[in-house]
Amino acid sequence: MFTLSALSNLSRPVSIIGGIIVFSYVAIISAPVFAEPTTPGPIVASPSADRQAIRAHYERRFPGIPVEAHKDGAYAIDKKAGEQWLELEDFPPYEIAVDEGEDLFNTPIGDGTYSDCFGDGAVKGQYPYFDEDRSEVVTLELAINDCRSKFGQPTLDYKGAEIVRLSAYIAFVSRDQIINVAEPSSQAALLAYNDGKRFYSSRRGQLNFACSSCHVQLAGNRLRAEKLSASVGHVTHFPVYRLKWQDVGSLHRRFARCNQQVGAEPFARQSPEYRNLEYFLTYISNGLPLNGPAIRK
């Protein structure tokens, strides 16, 4: 059974004016960027045009909030929640994961070490990228497992604790790098990018939502008490420590949650679908700084 409750499963008690139905009804723009086309037509816009269009969309929607501020997700647009969130940063719950990740990073893998592949670990800004030889999107998680394979070690389960800790450490030492995914130039790279873009704007599940319904069309609106964050900035801070998970979790875990909450089947972590989605989302976030790991509700 699917549930609609996911739409509001994170609601916190906030003060509301009891009984009085006076509030801001944020109108839905009629021709939203990346809104689901009624019939899937050819995608014509270039990636750089996409990026400019979506930045302009958020600038219009959030006057006075620079696009870069969306690296803090919903907290960039929800002042009150942002204050509570900053307090959490005093004792960041992801610190243990970062420490454990550091230990793992420095543990030899067969005849090699992670340093042989990633130097000091400050490499997050290089991922994801489209690998022309393999003709697929390579994410940091994929590269971690490639590194292990290179030294004859078994790959890590993408759902397991180890890989997310390693990536938490790598995210931590890569802080402040600026996202700069190369413009998809080859035909194959463009296909992967457009696949991610189409995924983002396709309606799914019983509730019939696209990612863009919530994070583009409705960005800044509340679903019950929850403010919806902007897509630009979604990739800056993963893995994330979610209070709800009581643990750090990967970007693809979050994708899966957002798929499930509209009653759609999630895809496997590191599936081509989610890697292409990550490629698209990261490209449109070019120019934003990396600030992971972060805390989210």
Binding site: S8, I21, F23, Y25, I28, N221, A225
Partner: peptide, 13 residues
């Protein structure tokens, strides 16, 4: 909706 707590604001009242 009258009597409903924590409403969202994506649709009209």
């Amino acid at each position: 909706i009258d009597g409903g707590e924590l409403p969202g604001n994506s649709g009209p009242p």
